[in-house]
Design a protein around this nucleic acid. Structure first.
Lengths: 223, 223
DNA sequence: GGCTTATTAAAGTATTTAATTGAATGATCG
DNA sequence: CGATCATTCAATTAAATACTTTAATAAGCC
């Protein structure tokens, strides 16, 4: 029953270690990418603009506290979130920050122009309308992430190719765009671009990881 | 539409700042104490064993990211959690750590001996049994925290005084003990001590902040 | 208005942390 | 069985953080 180094503190130190792993924008960026699906080190490095060695180190920080797990596949090491718990933790962090940090509010208002004007479609609504053939679902993420999993029946056009490939989207129905998550700007930009072209378009709430975490159907492209 | 300093990164930096504020065991300790109720700087300093100046600095780190708010009352400054969001975030952090950090598991098993043997009573069960007069509810936190809010009808005996004040607990009913939260050792110790004395005793799940957050009735001692 | 008390600010020192570079590991494939 | 590739390790440097001590502020009280 000796308690020299208070067990409470050692426990809190473990919690603190997890929080510390989350306390870097680059690591949060990596986590958001991995939330889209399993990915290799080099691919994560180019997506984030970090060096490979640096990326590897960040990934190990995340692995050490159990936020991600890795496995080898041929010569590559693939990383993914260890659990949906991690998504929940990230969502909780976002929500708290959104509610309490004035700066986040400013960014949301400033960059995500007229956020409320681009009113989001809920996942459930989208499911219903999809079944009825009333909407076209547009996935604006990079092809790599689309391949790792996407909303069934969605069309993948990265936002930068949107103008060029507009003809791939039937004009018959409203377009609902989605991307990585609640703060992913891509879907906002897509909606803005589509409206400029006179199309009817809205965003889906949140993004693909939340869709999958909600237990909704997911389609994968065979590799 | 210029995006020199990617808005995504600035957003992530805000989230990272919140995580960083959580990345210190001492600050988590302070948060757990404030989860019991509003408290002054000096009182928090003595409870955590930190110097007053250091405590003040930690509190400001927490305030800067909006996790706590403060107000003046006479000569004192009182701090409290800004929102139940914060409780949810802490719970999420705990859950992730518990599930993924082997060390936490080791600590839980090692210190909280036979955790499962001391099976916890759920809040709802406790409510029902309380109404039927079947249990005595024991609050083992320090009187200060008890005064700031407690389960109605509970008896406050800090765990260190338990043996001495055993006679204050009627022998007629089972005792259910609670303290600060899921990892607060006090209630485990209380249950162990009571069982040693031949009493029937169990823990309540989690602790007082979770009780309050669940919207259950709370009693305050007038000051 | 000055005095007391509680809190915060500032400055200094010791530790940590992030990123870069270059070398080492370890598996796969010819 | 060695060559090649992806990844990790190790060492370095620069920047950031935690805690202490000492000084300043601000509010209440006589």
């Amino acid at each position: 029953m000796s308690t020299q180094v208070s067990p409470k503190l050692s426990m809190l130190e473990q919690f603190a270690a997890v929080a510390k792993a989350l306390s870097s924008a680059h690591r949060l960026d990596l986590l958001e990418l991995m939330a889209q699906g399993e990915r290799g080190v080099e691919s994560l490095a180019t997506a984030t603009g970090l060096s490979v060695a640096n990326t590897s180190q960040h990934l190990q920080v995340l692995r050490r506290v159990g936020l991600v797990v890795s496995r080898k596949s041929g010569p590559h090491v693939l990383y993914r979130l260890s659990d949906d718990d991690v998504l929940a933790l990230l969502a909780s962090l976002r929500q708290t920050a959104e509610r309490h940090v004035a700066e986040v509010d400013r960014l949301v208002r400033g960059y995500f122009h007229e956020k409320d004007a681009l009113e989001a479609v809920s996942r459930d609504d989208l499911m219903t309308r999809m079944k009825d053939g009333l909407v076209i679902v547009l996935d604006v993420r990079p092809p790599e992430e689309y391949a790792a999993g996407h909303v069934p029946g969605s069309i993948n056009i990265p936002v930068k190719d949107l103008k060029r490939r507009l003809n791939e989207l039937p004009e018959s129905a409203e377009v609902v765009a989605y991307c990585r998550g609640p703060y992913c700007v891509l879907s906002y930009e897509a909606v803005a671009a589509l409206r400029e072209q006179g199309r009817t378009a809205r965003r889906m709430e949140d993004g693909f990881p939340e869709w999958r975490a909600a237990g909704l159907p997911v389609e994968e492209t065979a590799r």
